[in-house]
């Protein structure tokens, strides 16, 4: 299944930060959704700004346009405001992309747990992300930090508890 580019991707003005406030808002919204769906499609969890500029998302070779670094920063900043992105360093050169917010992930996981009757049982984090049972689930292959975040979100909701074990972490669902 190849990634389906939005129509804006082939529209040259898309790659220029628009000075008009209204236009810019729409443009940024389009960029955010493109960036997130691209990351989701390719299961990307961290992004490097420099590398991102060369990646096909921000660099359309067909129409020879690429988004400038400043504009990428603006887009990322916009994503951060929406809670989909976290900077990994102060220089804002690397970031975590959460195309699903931890709460959403947590919800998905909890749904799966309750569906499979695993409430009140303990399972390891490895089981959740890489176990045979979760194959086919969206959170299969989820990076550990992301999984942890989601479980923490569930914990604050009172639906799970993270247990630290000798060889890693486990979780108990309620």
């Amino acid at each position: 299944m190849s990634f389906e580019w939005p129509w804006q991707y082939n529209f040259p003005p898309f790659f220029t930060l628009q000075p008009n406030v209204d236009t810019r808002q729409k443009q940024l919204a389009a960029w955010c959704s493109l960036a997130l769906s691209y990351c989701r499609h390719h299961k990307l969890y961290t992004l490097d700004v420099m590398e991102a500029q060369e990646s096909p998302v921000f660099n359309n070779k067909k129409i020879e346009r690429k988004l400038s670094l400043e504009a990428i920063q603006v887009v990322f900043e916009e994503l951060r405001k929406k809670g989909n992105l976290e900077w990994l360093d102060k220089n804002k050169s690397r970031c975590l992309v959460m195309w699903r917010r931890p709460e959403e992930w947590g919800k998905l996981i909890y749904q799966w747990v309750s569906k499979n009757g695993m409430v009140n049982t303990v399972c390891t984090l490895y089981e959740l992300s890489n176990g045979d049972d979760t194959e086919g689930e969206e959170f299969h292959g989820l990076e550990e930090w992301m999984l942890l975040r989601s479980l923490q979100a569930l914990q604050t909701e009172g639906k799970a508890e993270i247990i630290t074990m000798d060889d890693g972490k486990g979780v108990k669902f309620f």
């Binding site: 003005p13 220029t16 008009n20």
Partner: peptide
């Protein structure tokens, strides 16, 4: 552009 009818492509 200011009125939102046009947008620019600065390349």
């Amino acid at each position: 552009e200011k009125m939102g009818h046009l947008c620019r492509d600065d390349s």
